[in-house]
Amino acid sequence: MKSPISLLRGNVHAGESLVFGTLGVSLFVYSLYSHYQEDVPWKLSPYLFPLFIALSLILVAIAMLIQGKKKGEEIGVSGAASAGMPKKVIGFTALVVIYYILLPFLGFLVTNTLMLMLFFLYLGVRPWWKAFLFSGAFTYLTHVVFQLLLHVRLPQGVL
């Protein structure tokens, strides 16, 4: 019988199974606690189905742990693909977050023209006037389609 610690050593799915196991246990505890707070029979309880999900998640996490151990023994932990977020993706996501923050303040027309140009430049569109031209044209097109044709009230901004 393998100890839990030995299951984690050299396991390619150790991190993922720990995360899902913890989530499963948390959901299990939360569902039980919330059910008794509601004071209704189990057959009517809103937490009956989440409880099943929690139990299934715990079982799947255990299965994943065992699978990861076997896979780790076959290919070695170093053989597992690295699955981080490259700098280029982080940078682009950060730009989208900035877009999200600016949109309610500057409104759609200003934010979109500005940020779309930055998106283009970030992904390598050169020269800068080409990026500006594309962003202006696309912003106008989006504005016509959404605001004028589809009557979606796009953010106007507060400034």
């Binding site: 989208v96 949109l103 779309l116 998106f119 283009f120």
Partner: peptide, 22 residues
């Protein structure tokens, strides 16, 4: 590099248009 920013904007506006909330 021209296509992806346009799709990103469509994703943002598409999500916003559903309930017009940020």
């Amino acid at each position: 590099n021209i296509l992806l920013p346009a799709v990103t904007v469509l994703c943002i506006i598409g999500a916003y248009a559903y309930n017009t909330r940020m």
